[in-house]
């Protein structure tokens, strides 16, 4: 059996989008945002920072460098390496859970 946590390759040029905005249900709790995906039946807790990343992708499909640039604008400072790694991990996790997906070449101009 291969490793359960195998992830997909995230190339820096891949553009991610949220395809299922209508199928997500949100509940806002005291210390997290809980998102429920009606397709997978999974519920996950997002902290404010993860929610911010999610919102950026929801606004408009974007690549990893674009996500980082948008976050730098919000934070009003450059993003250091530690934080960058965390962002990459979060995006990879979103992809793994199916919350976001890479845009296919033939619908890239969505």
């Amino acid at each position: 059996m291969h490793e359960a946590n195998a992830t997909f390759n995230l190339s820096s040029t891949a553009v991610f989008k949220i395809t299922n905005a209508a199928g997500f249900l949100w509940e806002h709790m005291d210390d997290a945002h809980i998102i429920y995906d009606t397709r997978s039946g999974h519920s996950q807790a997002l902290n404010d920072f993860a929610r911010e990343i999610f919102d950026i992708i929801e606004d408009k499909p974007c690549s990893l460098p674009e996500i980082l640039a948008a976050l730098e604008l919000i934070l009003e400072r450059p993003i250091e390496d530690d934080l960058k790694q965390q962002i990459l991990k979060t995006v990879a996790e979103f992809d793994k859970m199916g919350l976001i997906e890479p845009v296919k070449s033939h619908d890239e101009n969505v």
Binding site: E27, M29, D30, D31, A32, I34, S43, A45
Partner: peptide, 11 residues
Amino acid sequence: LTETMAFFRLV
């Protein structure tokens, strides 16, 4: 328990 903890424990 926080709401989030309460929620996930119920799940």
